[in-house]
Simulated scan of single mutants.
Amino acid sequence: MNNKSKLVNKIALAGLIAVSTIAATSSPNVHAASATPIATPTATPTASAAQSLSAQKGSTYINTIYKLASVGKIPGLNAIAGKTPISAVHYKWGEPEVGGKLKGNHYELYNFGMGQGAYGFGINKSGVIYDLRNFGQSIDQTVGVKSLTFASVIQTLGKPKEVRFSGTDKIYVYSPAKAYELKFVGPSTVAKGKVAHIDHINVYAAKANT
């Protein structure tokens, strides 16, 4: 199978597990996901499509991220940190681009491209996901994860519980629930006159990291 066919198949499989931001807040079943169609850049957005995109930016989106994190989820997935086995993701999406051959405690990455976004999973030695990551998509950075800034996060959620640094990353850490940490990760420094945008978000279940 060529790379183009593999990509098409994975995007089709993504529809089986990816969900709209709104649907994700109401459905607790990782296997009951359904996709919300994404308007192509050349299409004229319908009212519902415009509302969907509008919901993926600013304080509305940040509050949705926080609400999902309180139950161990991230936008775009029904997987639950600390509960969902990586085998469920493999069943829906096939093998990942990165990390599929690794054993024990490791990370795996799926990058669907074509504006479909990228997701990462931290997996413990028992095969349970303890860290969910949403990298958003890079085609339209006016919506989704990469549209957010550290300033907009603070404006919406207040000051983080903790600020961490790892390499070139700055990490704002919030505690939406006792079992989970919500992390907004972006560059620790940017060029003068530039604004630091969020690169990805994490929902982390510390007790499952074994």
Rank of each mutant, 00 (worst) to 15 (best):
S26A: 12
Q141S: 04
V203K: 05
T44H: 13
A208C: 06
K6M: 04
I171S: 08
N9D: 12
L13M: 09
G15M: 03
A118C: 15
K57M: 06
V195T: 15
T168K: 14
Y119P: 00
L132G: 02
A206E: 08
Q141V: 10
A196V: 08
K161A: 09
A14N: 10
A179G: 05
S152T: 15
L157Y: 10
A12N: 14
T84W: 01
N9Y: 12
G167L: 07
V89L: 14
F121D: 03
A205F: 01
P37M: 08
Y91E: 10
A49Y: 08
A205G: 02
A49L: 07
A79S: 11
S188F: 05
S34G: 12
S147G: 07
A118S: 15
S175G: 13
L68G: 00
I80N: 02
G193P: 06
G120V: 01
I38S: 15
A196G: 09
I74Q: 01
T46N: 08
L109I: 15
F121E: 01
I123C: 07
N209I: 01
T25I: 06
K6P: 02
A50T: 06
Y204R: 08
K73G: 01
F150N: 09
S52K: 11
W93M: 12
S34H: 09
S138H: 04
A18V: 13
Y110A: 01
K146G: 00
G72K: 00
A50P: 00
A50D: 06
P75A: 12
N9R: 07
A88L: 07
L68C: 03
L148P: 00
K125H: 14
V190E: 13
P75L: 09
L7N: 11
S20D: 11
V30F: 14
G100N: 06
E108C: 02
I11V: 14
N3Y: 13
T189S: 12
P96I: 03
P45Y: 11
F165D: 02
A81F: 00
K57W: 03
Y61L: 03
K207C: 03
V173W: 00
I123V: 14
S188W: 02
L102P: 04
H106G: 04
T42E: 06
P160T: 07
S175R: 05
I201Y: 10
T60H: 11
Q116A: 13
A39V: 13
K83A: 11
S152W: 05
V173S: 06
A39G: 05
G127D: 11
S70Y: 02
S188P: 02
A18F: 11
L109R: 15
T42K: 13
V153A: 10
N105A: 12
L68H: 02
N111P: 00
R164S: 06
K183P: 03
G158Y: 04
A35N: 10
K178V: 11
T210E: 15
L68S: 01
G136W: 08
Y204G: 07
A88N: 14
A151I: 05
F184W: 04
A81H: 04
K73Y: 04
T60G: 06
P45N: 06
K192P: 01
I38R: 15
V153K: 02
G186V: 09
G127Q: 07
F184E: 00
L77T: 14
F121H: 05
P41S: 08
A179H: 10
Y119G: 00
Y174Q: 15
